[in-house]
Simulated assay, not measured.
Amino acid sequence: MSRKRAPRALLIAVVVLGVLLVVVDRVAAHVAEGVVADRLRASENLSSTPDVSIKGFPFLTQWARGEVDDVEIGIGGYEASTGGGERIRIEGLRARARGVRVAEDGGGATARSATGTATVPYDELLKATGSGPAKVLPGVTAEVVGLADGGHGKVKVSVAITTPVHSSTVSVLSTLTVEDNQVRVHADALPKLVADLVGSRIRDITDFRQTIDELPGGVRLDKVEAAGDGVEITVRGADIRLAG
């Protein structure tokens, strides 16, 4: 081999070796993603296998030191607890976990911290408003019959008011807040006539709260905002159990 060909051959060998190392690294990451996904499905009793994507390169050096820097997790549908024996459906949970450690035997995984977002459909949140019309005056009942996006982060709460001679539906804009893993809905203001007639009684109907507990890994509600398809929640947690 000539002296001119030697550097070129060495360069080709280095490039081939680099490609092989990248392939091996990505295959190892894919296997680890599958392990975490299967464990997460089993530990959270999910109906389908979640999406797990390990970020960062190289993966093998992260694995060797026992901690993966960044993992993205997607769960299509999840049933959380309402705290009263009922379940509430949340959809499109996307979470990002940092500092993920997988047990040496592959039996569990934990994260130093995690943040994520999901959506609570309006029909699910509507269940928290109670069952059936409630009496607000003799012969007068009121019932929340719909929730929708009111714009600017507000929820539009539609209330059906029924009297012996007339029925009508009024809508109020409500503010959403979070406290102790509860979504709280509070009407900003009531229509003047309604407020004058049944002020405090109608607020027992328009203002309500919904617990959303037992979220994956033990994350907790952090923020909440109304959106087109439902209420968007932000979750956050530290020392999160991802699987096992």
Rank of each mutant, 00 (worst) to 15 (best):
V235I: 14
S53Q: 14
V22P: 02
R89N: 01
A243D: 05
I90W: 09
V172Y: 03
E124A: 13
I212F: 10
T117V: 12
A195L: 03
D105Q: 01
D204N: 04
A238C: 04
P50A: 07
G230N: 03
L11V: 14
A6V: 10
V14T: 08
A6M: 12
S48N: 09
V172N: 07
G228I: 07
I240F: 00
G18F: 00
D69T: 11
L93W: 11
S43W: 09
D239A: 11
T117C: 12
K192I: 15
V155R: 07
G108S: 15
L176Y: 03
S48L: 08
G151T: 07
S131L: 06
D25Y: 02
L40R: 09
L20V: 14
P58G: 07
V22R: 05
T177V: 12
L197R: 04
R26P: 00
V24W: 11
V35H: 00
E225D: 02
E104G: 12
V16D: 03
A64R: 13
D229H: 04
S131V: 13
R201I: 03
G74L: 02
S43P: 08
E124K: 12
A95P: 05
G66W: 13
V224G: 00
P138H: 15
V165H: 01
F208N: 08
A9C: 03
L221I: 10
